[in-house]
Design a protein around this nucleic acid. Sequence first.
DNA 1: AAATTATACAACCGCCGCATT
DNA 2: CAATGCGGCGGTTGTATAATT
Length: 261
Amino acid sequence: MEGPSVGVRKGAWTEKEDTLLKKCIEECGEGKWHLVPSRAGLNRCRKSCRLRWLNYLKPNIKRGVFAADEVDLIIRLHKLLGNRWSLIAGRIPGRTANDVKNYWNTHLRKKKVDPSFNLNPLLNPSNPQSKVIKPRPQLLSKNSFPICSDGNMKINTAAAAASNNLASADSSGYCFPNENEEIMLWKHLTMNENEIMLWKNVTMNENEVDYHQQQGSLDTMDLSVLGEQPMNEELEVVEEDPYGSLDEFYLDVELWNVFNP
DNA sequence: AAATTATACAACCGCCGCATT
DNA sequence: CAATGCGGCGGTTGTATAATT
């Protein structure tokens, strides 16, 4: 068991402690946190050291107020992921999980999130106009998509839309009907390089699509749609491009969010 | 100007999953 | 198999500062 360490310092870090910790990690690298206190000459527990580094001292941590686009992303991702702060923070460069969590708790939790994120009244199943369409599986070949010069698939292009008979497309997302006139959609979301997110078991509402197309915001559309969907499976984040080893794949009842082109 | 209340956020705590013994 | 130790996570607290009374 991890017994409580006796006699270790707690509370706010001093400048001197920060310097010691920074020096230690610059010399020995990140990790092996249990060794850090003795290495650095700090009377702190390993967790305190780790936290101080990750949340404050680590280079490239962004400080100051959150920009509008960062807030926007937090709201969207929180809708998809819930309180999984480290996952959310992983999508917001320079922000730590603690920062995001604090921001959410102090600025967003109590507030009603901007209605533009889920404003579509047509999503309401009690609305008689609302007709939910469930996409059916559809097989697409990897070769259907343009391949970049580096060999990677490039989905997020107008060319991809054109070559796949997509019903509509914009620079960042596409939707199209399958053979049963059921609407499917996928969307590029700003991610780390080569990172892919996919959502499964997405159902869509055709009015939803119309509505957002009228609004001219496919970008808002698919994420808000996603946020409203009963997803049977959790969002899956894949760190590598899985298509490199696949020749074909099913769109199935999946919504794809794909890497930076 | 002083007292009180609200806010922001750094830091702590307990729990978890995993690896090792 | 259980015990232990580790890194990591999310919930919560403590406290400095700002805003309000």
